[in-house]
Design a protein around this nucleic acid. Structure first.
Lengths: 340, 340
DNA sequence: CTGAAAGCGCTTACAG
DNA sequence: CTGAAAGCGCTTACAG
C-alpha cells in the first residue's frame, strides 16, 4: 500500500506537502512540485486510507441508509424501497460520500454502527414515531427520515401527501359513481402512511354522505405470501356484492388481488373497480393497467439527499421537511357506473 | 465519545486490559476486573471506533456490494437485483460485517473504494468477463461474483444454470406442441446470462428439428420504458401469425409485453403462449399467472455470502463456484396446441 | 510555500 | 494476569 510518506520520500518533500496536493490545497504548493507530485501520485496509484483520514478528522464521509426490517422480511423486496434505496445510493455517491446500508430490527443497534464508523449523516426508511425519539437520543448527526410521521418538530422528513392520496382515490371513485367501497392495505400502523391515506379516503366519503363499512376495511401483511393473498381474495369475494370498488394502498398488493379475483372469474373493472397507490412499474405490467395514485420516488430520493447535504454543509441549519404532491393516474381499472 | 483510555482511567487499569475485555480475550483478565470493566463499558455506553481499529489492524470488517450501473439506470429497480442485494445485506450483517454499497459505471472506480476503506471482501453483480480481469488486477481480497461468466479459472462465482433454463423453456414449449417460437430478452451481452439461455433454447429446438428465425429474436433495453415496450409489442404483433409462443427471459419484461399485447386484443395464452424467467413475485401478480423458469434468489444470496465468509476465514482457500439448478414452474401462460 | 511535532483511538508485540 | 511502547496513515496547528 502506497502512503503519503512513500510519495513524500520519492518526491523529496515532506509528507505535508503531499497531503496538501492530495487534498486540493494547491495554493500551498509551488507549481513545479505540484505537477511532480501529482504525476507521482498517479503513477504510484495512490489511494487515500479512509480509516486514517476518518480517525484524524473524526469524520468519515459515510452516509448510512437505515432500513427497518421485520424478521426475515427482505426490506428491498418491496419495489418502493428498492427503487428509493437505489436512487439514494446514486445521489450519495455523486456527492462524494460512501453509502453504508444497514437493516435494523430495533433501534439500539443503530447507535453501534453510526457511532462506530463516525457516520456523518443518515437516511431512515420506515421508522415510527416512538423510534425516532430513540434515534434522536443516540446521535445528533444530520438525519433525514422518509415517510415518517412524528410529533417531533425538529425533524427533517421527506414524505408525500398521503392524506391527499386517500382523498384523490375517494373523489375519483365517487365521480365514477361508486358508493359502496372497500379499503385494503398493508398493515395499518399508528400514525403510519396507511393511516393517513385511510383518513383522507374516509373524510371524502363522509363529505359525500358515504361511509366505509368496517368489514370492508382490512389489511394484508405481505403481498408476496400466496396464503395471505388468497385469504384477502376470499374476504373480497365475500363482500363483492356489497361493493363496487376497492382502494388498495399499494400497487403490488392491488395486482396480487386482481390476479386472485380473476381466478374466481371476477372481471376487473366490469365487476369490481380497483385503484392502487404508488404508480410503480407493475401498474403498467398488468391488464387492465392500474389506475393509481402516483408519487415521485426519484424526487423523494433526491430531496432526501439534498436536505442531508444541506445540513452537512451547514451543521447549524434547522430541520427541513418536504411533502411531495401526489396525483391520480387514470388507467383502466376503474369503470364509471354512474349511468347504471 | 468514550474511548478505551477513558474507561481505563475510570477503572484504574491500563488501556490494554480494557481492550482485552472489549475484544473478548477474557482469559487475559482476572474475573473481578472483567466484571467491573464490562459494567463500566455498558454504563458509559462504549462504542469501538471502527476507523481506529481498521487503521491499526489494516482490516475493516466491511464487505462491499458492487453493482454495475449503466447511466441513469437504477440498478435496484430490477426486482432480481433488489431482492438479491436485500438478502446479501442481511447475511453480511448476520456475520458481523458491515455492508457498503457501491454503484459503478467503470471498473477503475472500484479500486478507490475498496482500497480506501480496506474493504475485506466484495460481492459483484452484473460484471462481464473483461471487467473481471481488471478487477482482479486491482485487489486480491476475497471476491464473489454473481451471474458472471468468465474464462478465469480461479473465480468464485454463484450463478444459475442459464443454459438449462433455456433448454427447459424449449422442451416445455415443444411438449405443448409449439413449433414456431420467438425469443425476447434484455440486452444480450457477449457471454452474459441471456446468451446462455438463448443457446440452451436454440439447442433444444435444433434437437427437434426446429429453429429460431432470427427475426423472431430480439431484445429490449429497459422493461420500464413504455416506448421500448410498445416497440417490442409492435414487433411481436408483426410476427404473431408466424409464431405460437414466445420465451421472454425476464418475468418483468414478459408481464410488460403481455399487458401491451392485451391492448391489441391478443389473448394469452389462447393466441400466444408466453414463458418467463426468474419466478419473481410478478409472475403471480398478473393474469394469467406466468409459467416461468424459477431460480432461488435467496439461496443465491446465501451461498455468495457463505463462500465469501469461507474465504475470509481461510485466505488460502481456493476459489469456489456454485451453479444452482433451475426448474420450470407451470402456471397458465402456455397452452397446449398439440391437438389442433 | 514548506515542514517538524503531536495527536486521532486503536492494536501488536513484547516485557514483566 | 497487567501494562508501557511503538506504530497504523492521516490531519491540525503551528513555526519558519
Amino acid at each position: 500500500m502506497v502512503t503519503l510518506k512513500d510519495i513524500a520520500e520519492e518526491a523529496h518533500v515532506s509528507l505535508m506537502t503531499v497531503s496538501n496536493v492530495v487534498n486540493g490545497k494547491h495554493n500551498k504548493v509551488s507549481k513545479e512540485k505540484l505537477k511532480e507530485i501529482q504525476d507521482l501520485l498517479q503513477k504510484r496509484n495512490y489511494v487515500q486510507n479512509a480509516s486514517a483520514r476518518s480517525l484524524a478528522k473524526a469524520n468519515s464521509n459515510i452516509v448510512a441508509i437505515i432500513l427497518r426490517s421485520i424478521g426475515q422480511e427482505n426490506s428491498l423486496s418491496s419495489p418502493h424501497n428498492a427503487h428509493l434505496v437505489g436512487s439514494i445510493v446514486r445521489y450519495i455517491q455523486e456527492l462524494g460520500y460512501y453509502a453504508m446500508i444497514n437493516l435494523v430490527e430495533d433501534c439500539t443497534s443503530i447507535a453501534k454502527s453510526i457511532r462506530s464508523w463516525n457516520v456523518q449523516a443518515a437516511i431512515f426508511l420506515g421508522m415510527f414515531d416512538d423510534e425516532i425519539e430513540q434515534i434522536y437520543a443516540l446521535s445528533n448527526i444530520p438525519m433525514v427520515f422518509i415517510d415518517s410521521y412524528s410529533a417531533i418538530r425538529q425533524l427533517s422528513n421527506v414524505g408525500i401527501d398521503d392524506y391527499k392520496g386517500g382523498q384523490l382515490a375517494a373523489e375519483y371513485l365517487i365521480k365514477n359513481g361508486h358508493k359502496h367501497v372497500a379499503f385494503v392495505s398493508p398493515p395499518n400502523y399508528d400514525n403510519g402512511v396507511v393511516q393517513h391515506r385511510l383518513k383522507g379516503f374516509k373524510d371524502v366519503l363522509a363529505q359525500h354522505g358515504l361511509s366505509l363499512n368496517s368489514e370492508h376495511c382490512f389489511s394484508v401483511i405481505s403481498d408476496a405470501d400466496p396464503e395471505q393473498i388468497n385469504q384477502a381474495v376470499d374476504q373480497l369475494m365475500l363482500i363483492k356484492n356489497e361493493i363496487t370498488a376497492v382502494f388498495v394502498t399499494s400497487d403490488g398488493l392491488a395486482a396480487s388481488l386482481i390476479s386472485g379475483l380473476h381466478r374466481y372469474g371476477l372481471r376487473i373493472p366490469a365487476d369490481l373497480s380497483v385503484i392502487g397507490f404508488d404508480n410503480m412499474t407493475i401498474s403498467k405490467q398488468i391488464y387492465p393497467p392500474l389506475t393509481t395514485i402516483a408519487q415521485d420516488l426519484e424526487l423523494k430520493a433526491r430531496l432526501a439527499v439534498e436536505i442531508l447535504n444541506g445540513r452537512l454543509n451547514n451543521l447549524n441549519s434547522s430541520a427541513e421537511s418536504r411533502i411531495l404532491d401526489v396525483c391520480l393516474i387514470e388507467r383502466e381499472s376503474v369503470i364509471n357506473i354512474s349511468d347504471q
